[in-house]
Amino acid sequence: MDTTQDPRPLYLLALGQLEKLIAEATPAALDRPTPCEEYDLRQLLGHVVGGVHRLAYIGEGGRAEDVVAATGDLPDDAWPAAFERARARVTAAWADDAKLDRPSFAPWGEVPGRAAVGGYVMEAVTHSWDVARALGSGLALDEELGRAALAVAEFVLPAENRGGPVPFGPVRPAPADADATTRLAAYLGREV
């Protein structure tokens, strides 16, 4: 990833994509399985909303390890509003340009703020794919976002030594004509 770049516009674009998908998640769909085998859709939405709050907390000067992961304990119809609140918080937390170059304490260690936000671009885009698959959504995922997130993944996550402390499975094959987000999902160990 080019660390001179400002990843915030891509992150906000990724959040916009997630927001559209979360709006499709009816209460009846929340028990569906997702490509993240450990999560049903409700738990995945908890993880997604919790991740946005975690990045906000990092931007506010906190350490990622101080945030307890969300479990998905919201009323079934509350996900869009919860996501909107998280999005507003993260946008405010990272509004100051100077934070991009300050040390930040992400789940993977101390990094410049831009690297923390860049990592969460990958997270948001990947989970957009997961949510879209769980819903059977017809939403076309943004190709630019997919390419950017795949570039981050390939830069920071070697294909070897997956599992254990690295929370991704082995790289899986993707069809030759797969879009960038599907290739990202396969790179991160999803069955595509």
Rank of each mutant, 00 (worst) to 15 (best):
A82F: 08
A149R: 01
T91L: 08
L145S: 04
R54T: 15
H47F: 08
V52T: 15
G109N: 04
Y57S: 10
L145P: 11
A134Q: 11
A149Q: 00
V90G: 07
E110Y: 05
A149N: 00
W129V: 02
L141E: 01
D73T: 15
T91I: 07
P103Y: 10
W108Y: 13
L55D: 05
R133V: 11
G61P: 00
D96G: 03
G136W: 06
G118L: 03
P107N: 11
E143D: 08
H127A: 15
L55S: 06
S137Y: 10
E84G: 12
T71L: 06
S104D: 02
R114W: 07
P112D: 09
L141F: 01
V131Y: 05
E84R: 14
G46I: 08
Q43I: 09
L141Y: 12
G136F: 11
L150G: 00
V90C: 12
A82M: 05
P75W: 11
A116Y: 04
L74A: 12
V121Y: 00
K99G: 13
R102F: 06
L141H: 08
D76N: 15
A82R: 03
A116Q: 03
L150D: 00
R89L: 13
R102G: 09
W129F: 05
A70S: 14
G46K: 01
R85D: 13
V121H: 02
S104H: 03
G51L: 06
V48S: 07
A88I: 06
I58W: 01
H47E: 04
